[in-house]
Design a protein around this nucleic acid. Structure first.
Lengths: 223, 223
DNA sequence: GATACCATAGTGGTATACCAATCAGCCCAT
DNA sequence: ATGGGCTGATTGGTATACCACTATGGTATC
């Protein structure tokens, strides 16, 4: 997912991408010195990047040392509950504040999900849709909180877009949200958002639970 | 203002307290080396503390350097809007999840506000009440977001508790929230929370606007 | 053979030296 | 008197050396 700030491949950004791409595995232990050769930097900036990543929830301090944040089912549940709060509120605020042009652009984003055939593009356009919805709320703290949520959820993306059917469903539901907003129907937009999140979240958690079983059986783990 | 983590007077905590107590003025420029003598530490830990404070919104990066986050009226407005979202949701969740004992403890906190005569204690108990309400939601992200909001708002506390009358009003409204929760009245609790925040926020912003006028007239500023 | 102890290597935490960029102030030239 | 250019001080950014602590593994002793 795009880092709103850094445009040049900063160390923070590179580490972040390594984690989000699962190149650094969830739960993996990291040592500051151990990262030096891979990322061609000295401890000080690596340490700074790790601290920043910790504040984004992608990395945690262990007893002594760091580890990539594990993918925790309870945390995902909490994130989706939190996200419901943020995103339904965003929908209401966007309904009040967004201009018709903004909403057209949002509908465009919703529409673009369908055209893409690749799961990767579906992920990105899905993320963009939800982020844009938050932006239309006009509240900087809401936006920032949504960014945090989406970042923390990003590593689970591979399960959401597995089937063409679920990509199609996301497209339908995003479109429904955008259309309710275009119709200035705040209640409808809130409801559409809520049901989209409820369904998506439930399927994600179920799917993750099953994957966890499978992985455990094969000796792997999610952290 | 209590730091949930650090119990020993860490550097981060000391810097944080210096900012929250307005000992370091809003908008004041800070230099890493310049803080060394005052805080008896070298650049590395000071830098780390500044980065952490930046992620809490108490400090910002300037073009070159750091500055204590100014007190910005628009930001306060945004914070209160965000807080409405978080806290009404907290009330609803708490209504579902909190045990009667939890709610009794919350009512106790609400009650303790009145007994205190000093503005200082009124601040602390008020903060505790709102933080406890968030805790009863049982959602870690909601709690953490509320902590962030309260931290960012903390420096404006001196205006909220100026008059005995406003302290009394806070007491009444907190009690009303706690009682609605005890009655398992989710709608009532949400409404009581909303009206408490609306009123408090509005008065705060008005008051800050006037203070800003007065300060500007006297040559000072809030950053 | 089991256990207790010690040496060692690896950890994050801190202090510090060096770097490039920048901003301010002063001096000199016009 | 004024404008231009240079110099020095100060900034954050980085690299690195040193510290205390701990966990571990091997060895020596019982």
């Amino acid at each position: 997912m795009p880092d709103p700030d850094d445009v040049s491949p900063t160390l923070h950004r590179r580490l972040r991408e390594a984690i989000l791409s699962l190149d650094l595995a969830p739960g993996e232990r990291l040592s500051e010195r151990g990262l030096e050769p891979e990322f061609r930097a000295s401890r000080t900036p690596i340490r700074a990047a790790l601290m920043r990543l910790a504040s984004e929830g992608l990395v945690r301090r262990d007893d002594r040392g760091w580890r990539v944040a594990p993918i925790d089912l309870d945390e995902i549940r909490g994130l989706y509950e939190f996200r419901e709060i943020l995103e339904t509120a965003s929908a209401r605020l966007a309904c009040d504040r967004a201009t018709p042009e903004d909403l057209e652009a949002l509908a465009e984003l919703a529409g673009s999900t369908a055209a893409d055939e690749t799961p990767e593009h579906s992920i990105d356009s899905g993320t963009s849709f939800h982020l844009e919805l938050a932006r239309l709320s006009g509240n900087a703290f809401l936006i920032s909180a949504m960014e945090g949520v989406l970042t923390r959820l990003y590593r689970t993306r591979w399960v959401e877009v597995q089937s063409a059917e679920s990509r199609e469903r996301a497209h339908r539901e995003h479109t429904a949200i955008a259309e309710a907003l275009l119709a200035a129907d705040a209640d409808g937009a809130e409801l559409a958002t809520l049901s989209h999140l409820r369904g998506t979240g439930e399927r994600l958690i179920t799917s993750l639970g099953e994957s966890r079983q499978r992985l455990r059986a094969s000796g792997l783990s999610l952290g």
